[in-house]
Design a protein around this nucleic acid. Structure first.
Lengths: 208, 208
DNA sequence: ACAGGTACATACTAGTTGGTATGATGAGAG
DNA sequence: CTCTCATCATACCAACTAGTATGTACCTGT
């Protein structure tokens, strides 16, 4: 699978195998032996690179999952002009999860719901990823307000928090029900909510 | 803890102990021995009442968790007049989760995210609870539309799906961040969204 | 009183868990 | 060429896992 003496490749193989096993079974139920088998390395190699299971989990969260969140949810927002358009696009991309992803849900949310209340190290890392995610959305919304793409009377921070919650919830509910229609229904109302964040035309007055 | 020969009390003790352990550690990581110790019964008693760990988990879901969802989220909707008012109230009640609940999140969502993709029996039961929950909200919204409390041009089913997702997501995000402020922010925007479901006054025209 | 089934209690097991102790092998420095 | 350290490989272990085998006490119908 990898060259005989390539510590970085070994580490990467371990990380991806661990990420896969954790995604499949959860952290606590992920078996070190299964990870070893899946990565094709031995126990000595694993415990040379990681002190224990917890550290391996931290590394998966920091280096694999956080990166995935960043690529899928944060990066598209950084250079967008209209944040609401960007959010629509991001949401549609998320909707193209295959059945596998529908079954297993969001790697971050899985780990968060399992470990946030159990282990402080996980909790801090998860909170860091979530708060960065929220902050990026809030920033994009602020820029959108400045550019006239977002209603200026709304609080970007509250919106960003609700958006992250709604996204996690929508994916989680689709996983709970194991049906794509649930996600589609949630998404359609989600989109309607997103549209409500746009500024209203000048000739129309609106309450609240 | 309970009378010597009271099978129903023994079963209940097992169920509540199991629910507690599952809530604390997750299903797969919950130890049968810990449940036994917590319930104050022996292994023989447990395996007399439940065939195996999975069956015990099913019973916890069916009899403890589903009941909790029903009491907290479904029942208040059944006899309400204005469903949006009712949803506001329900949400505020949920906000009064103590720190313990904030740390451990929603029992249903915890189990759902852990087990829905792993075990079909859990998945079916979880889906049943969720779909009933959604159906009750959708029903309340329809009655609200008939009574003029809810905008008639919206789809109650999509709204109910999104609402369940947003609730689960909000609680889950608060658990991820372990801070009440996150839930409050999410809730404030949630409430704003709820208000947008009310019919608009007749003298104002609105796009979309 | 007695039979029989319900409702447990105790002791045990086979398998798995994360983790370790020790040894081997390779690559780079001097 | 050799010394040394990073990088592994193998064998092992104590603790824990869900589950079982077996025995017993109690309650109920007859």
């Amino acid at each position: 699978m990898c060259a005989k003496r390539d510590p970085q490749a070994t580490r990467t193989a371990l990380l991806t195998a661990a990420a896969g096993e954790i995604y499949e079974s959860g952290f606590q139920s992920a078996s070190m032996d299964d990870i070893l088998r899946s990565a094709g390395v031995t126990k000595g190699a694993l415990y040379h690179h990681f002190a224990n299971k917890r550290d391996l989990g931290y590394a998966v969260l920091d280096e694999v999952i956080a990166q995935g969140v960043y690529d899928a949810w944060v990066k598209p927002l950084r250079e967008c002009v209209d944040p609401i358009d960007a959010l629509h696009t991001i949401l549609s991309n998320a909707a193209e999860m295959g059945h596998l992803e529908l079954r297993r849900g969001c790697p971050l949310n899985n780990l968060a719901q399992e470990m946030a209340g159990v282990d402080e190290g996980f909790q801090e890392r998860i909170a860091a990823v979530c708060s960065r995610w929220q902050a990026e959305i809030a920033g994009a919304l602020e820029r959108g307000q400045a550019g006239g793409y977002v209603r200026p009377d709304l609080d970007p921070v509250s919106i960003s928090t609700f958006l992250v919650a709604a996204v996690q919830g929508s994916i989680g509910l689709a996983k709970s029900c194991q049906c794509p229609e649930t996600f589609e229904r949630s998404k359609s109302e989600f989109c309607r909510y997103l549209e409500s964040l746009r500024p209203v035309p000048a000739n129309v007055s609106v309450a609240n």
